[in-house]
């Protein structure tokens, strides 16, 4: 069974906590210690400074590590900082990047259709999964994006255990939203989500290096679920999402 971390960051943070690591080598060492095989990583600068700069950095930093897979951070195009949706996605895929992240709150924009509808349509067209941290949006916006773009897989990362009532409602009322396990430390939560919504709605994530990797690995390893479901959550769900990207279009 392979563990593929869906929620990982590289690069120096402006406010690091003790134990923070920031280089690809250090991240690979952590992964080895926790028996994590692969990681989908975005760059800290893409959130804290500039998506364009951060996206370049993540390509550089993952280039020598086959088990680190770059994730780009995207923006609405109207200011001219980035190309329009279809062109931005084409450029991203041309660089071998098959996953996208957005930080609407940190970057001060909205996930509403009038702001990023073209970008969301472009991602949907080629089946690039979209990752959004829970604290970067709100439930209504995630629900609207999922409904407006049924072909787009939205991965809500960092959804906390305390909000299980909203998480369950979102999973019940949409078919294309997944959550990662990094903050979903609900007692019996992995088991219950698998039983109610299916293991395909959960992706293993650690939120490293903000959080330790080992405890999140254990959460999946010790869950009371079938080995088939465990393998899906641990890695094959994310692997399949990235493999399903239509790079030929």
């Amino acid at each position: 069974m392979k563990f593929f971390d869906a929620n990982c960051c590289l690069g120096k943070l402006s406010v690091p906590l003790p134990g923070h690591i920031d280089t690809p080598r250090e991240l690979c060492d952590l992964m080895e210690q926790a028996s994590v095989d692969d990681a989908l990583v975005y760059h800290a600068l893409s959130k804290e400074y500039s998506p364009v700069v951060g996206n370049g950095k993540i390509l550089e930093q993952t280039s020598e590590h086959d088990n680190l897979h770059p994730c780009w951070t995207l923006l609405p195009h109207h200011t001219g900082e980035v190309p329009p949706g279809a062109d931005a996605v084409k450029r991203m895929m041309g660089m071998g990047v098959r996953a996208a992240r957005v930080f609407p709150k940190a970057h001060n924009w909205t996930l509403s259709e009038w702001c990023v509808g073209d970008l969301l349509r472009a991602l949907e067209e080629v089946a690039v999964p979209l990752f959004i941290d829970f604290d970067q949006t709100d439930w209504n916006q995630v629900y609207s994006v999922a409904c407006e773009h049924p072909g787009l897989t939205v991965v809500l990362t960092g959804a906390p255990f305390r909000l299980s009532r909203q998480v369950y409602a979102l999973l019940a009322e949409t078919a294309n939203v997944c959550i990662d396990t990094s903050h979903f430390q609900l007692h019996g939560g992995i088991e219950d989500v698998c039983a109610q919504f299916g293991a395909h709605r959960l992706l293993f994530g650690t939120a490293a290096p903000h959080f330790s990797m080992g405890p999140s690995v254990m959460a999946v390893k010790y869950a009371g679920i079938s080995e088939e479901d465990r393998a899906m959550i641990a890695g094959s769900n994310l692997h399949n999402l990235l493999e399903s990207v239509r790079a030929d279009l």
């Binding site: 255990f161 430390q185 609900l186 007692h187 019996g188 939560g189 405890p215 690995v217 959460a219 010790y222």
Partner: peptide
Amino acid sequence: DVPFLSPVPQVGKIVY
């Protein structure tokens, strides 16, 4: 803090 939290990652903090 079980069952407020799953105990599994909490054990993991010590284990790792």
